[in-house]
Design a protein around this nucleic acid. Structure first.
Length: 563
RNA sequence: GGGCGAUUAGCUCAGUGGAUAGAGUGCUGGCCUCCGAAGCCAGAGGUCGGGGGUUCGAAUCCCCCAUCGCCCGCCA
């Protein structure tokens, strides 16, 4: 509907441009049409007249009148009336029957209503979570996962070819630290003194992993001929494998899966050179070298990031000859682009915001547009219980895990709560609220709309009444018109959510629709004495249900028939 | 010292230059003989952190200031 009006206005503007012969009217003027908050300003309205007033050197109201005059007869037939109001808004009053007739489109599109091809099949590589396999996931990861998974669904719905990927940071210091921690606990289990590393992992789960190793290997790792380094490496390998499996399981509990699990060790460091830097990574260094983006200083190899937009230079190869995390990250992102993605989207914790510029500067140095990389930064989650923050420390292994939360509140509630806020807002996740209030929970509020409609349908079936689109003109209540307009906005809401990489837009949209439905339901009877009206309202209800179902699907929230 | 983000109702937050700034929650008071009360209705609650500027119009854009969070390593 909106598209139709936009089109009508755009054509009229084009007409004005031709007639007035004025080149100052911008070629590709973006015509904005919206639903005014206040009903008295029409069903739809546009502000183009005010925008065009300056280039046309006329008053906005004058321009509005000219635009209206230039609407084609066809388009004109859509409207009951058109008014010019306020500073120069053009307000359109559409024939109710025109609006409600569109419900048939929703019904017929069914599952695909809202979807579009706006993304044109463009390849997008969406990387998220990518937590180090060194322990259980926490609520920060959970938010990242919920947002990433929802974004994947949303981007696919608007026609992007999305691949989701989890980068497994399974090489380097953290993993070494993990191995040492496990090995010390292993030693401890034989009554030896554990000399846990300073930055080691102290959680109980380390002990149980050590226990598993003991049950498999016995005391073999401590025997005469064994080299401690090898033992630590074994422990690291075993632990990261076990923890990765655990993480996969945890994500599954939240309903999140990935297309690719990209192992840093296996994919980036395969074919290691003698000096510890793999051929793949070396080729990136070579590329940067060729472009003059590197220099040596203090025995290290530096990247001239300041030349490419960052505020400082960064070390790629340390003076001990090993590569930095940053170097691997450049190689990884080069690899992503090498695999054909035109658009990279990363979801990172906000504490990594400082790395956005440096990574973009590196891509630029490699000859890519830095706009190919978009980073969604996610602010922290504060876990609350009854309004009091739950304090935790990951190092000490003392934290509430994502898995515990999912178990406590359920994955629907968890996902929904994690998606309720804009990503750049801090999020308070109150466990007691999520549970205690499950009766008035926003998730249930929306699911309830669906369950109610299903329930009405059951009753209708029993009475032999089936939905029908044959008399949509019977939907004349202001609320019916209002709701229909909003349903027709769903594709726009979805597109906007995709453009802004903001899943929470869908959440707000659904709450709004659900609320309207509950009001409607309380005020009016869907099944009544008038058979034809009942059929029509059933059809209407089914359209609402379709949108709610499609919307929740984008969030990865289930939609039970009964509750 | 520099950077990023935040600041909107008692609380938690929406609001990508438009008309009288919204929702949830909390508070007060109502609504089941009626398709599901996990619902609905009414009421109260605001100098959009402060100050300048840009323009027909600013919560929204620009500058300055304040407060809070997070970053600023040859760690990852």
């Amino acid at each position: 509907m909106i598209a139709e009006i936009k089109n009508a206005v755009a054509q009229a503007v084009e007409c004005v441009r031709r007639k007035s012969n004025i080149s100052s009217v911008p070629e590709n003027l973006f015509v904005e049409v919206q639903i005014p908050k206040n009903r008295e300003f029409g069903d739809y309205s546009t502000n183009v007249a005010m925008i065009l007033a300056r280039p046309l050197q006329k008053s906005p109201r004058e321009v509005a009148a000219i635009i209206i005059d230039n609407l084609s007869q066809n388009h004109r037939a859509l409207f009951k009336s058109i008014e010019i109001k306020g500073p120069g808004f053009i307000n359109f009053f559409v024939h109710e029957a025109v609006i409600t007739s569109k419900l048939a489109d929703i019904y017929n599109s069914a599952e695909s209503f809202g979807r579009s091809t706006a993304g044109r099949g463009e390849k997008v590589l969406l990387e998220f979570v990518s937590a180090n396999p060194t322990g259980a996931l926490h609520m920060g990861h959970a938010r990242n996962a919920a947002v990433g998974d929802a974004l994947a669904r949303i981007l696919r719905a608007v026609g992007y070819d999305v691949t989701t990927e989890y980068y497994i940071n399974d090489a380097g210091r953290q993993v070494d630290m993990l191995g040492r921690s496990v090995f010390e606990r292993y030693k401890e289990s034989f009554g030896l003194d554990a000399r846990m590393p300073q930055d080691g992992y102290y959680g109980e789960y380390i002990k149980s992993i050590a226990g598993e190793i003991r049950s498999i290997k016995g005391d073999e790792l401590l025997s005469e001929g064994s080299d401690e380094k090898d033992s630590i490496r074994y422990c690291a390998g075993f632990a990261k494998q076990a923890l990765l499996e655990q993480i996969k399981g945890e994500l599954e509990e939240l309903g999140v899966g990935f297309d690719n699990w990209y192992s840093e060790e296996a994919e980036l460091h395969s074919g290691d050179g003698a000096d510890g830097i793999s051929l793949k990574v070396k080729s990136v260094i070579g590329e940067l070298e060729d472009r003059g983006a590197l220099y040596k200083k203090d025995g290290a190899l530096w990247f001239r990031a300041t030349e490419y937009g960052d505020s400082q230079d960064w070390v790629l190869v340390k003076s001990d000859g090993t590569g930095t995390y940053f170097l691997n990250d450049i190689a990884y992102h080069g690899d992503k682009l090498g695999r054909g993605a035109l658009r990279l989207i990363n979801i990172w914790g906000a504490d990594h915001h400082g790395h956005v510029k440096r990574l973009k500067s590196a891509l630029k140095a490699l000859g890519f547009e830095d706009s190919m990389l978009e980073v969604v930064l996610i602010q922290f989650v504060r876990l609350m219980r009854d309004g009091v923050e739950v304090k935790m420390s990951k190092r000490a292994g003392n934290y509430v895990t994502m898995s515990e939360v999912v178990e406590e509140v359920g994955s629907d509630v968890a996902r929904f709560f994690l998606l309720m806020r804009g990503t750049d807002s801090h999020l308070d996740f109150d466990l007691e609220l999520a549970k205690r209030e499950s009766a008035e929970n926003p998730v249930f509020y929306i699911q309830y709309a669906n369950a109610r409609i299903r329930s009405v349908f059951k009753k209708a079936e029993a009475a032999g009444i089936s939905p029908s689109p044959d008399h949509l003109e019977l939907l004349t209540l202001p609320l019916e018109i209002e709701i229909t307009k909003k349903l027709l906005m769903f594709p726009d809401a979805l597109r906007e959510s995709a453009e802004l990489l903001s899943p929470h837009k869908i959440v707000f949209y659904l709450q709004d629709i659900a609320s309207d439905f509950h009001v409607y339901y309380n005020k009016n009877r869907i099944i009544g004495d008038d058979h034809t009206l009942s059929q029509t309202r059933l059809f209407f209800a089914e359209c609402i249900r379709a949108v709610v179902r499609n919307g929740l699907g984008l969030l990865g929230v289930s939609i039970p028939e009964r509750m």
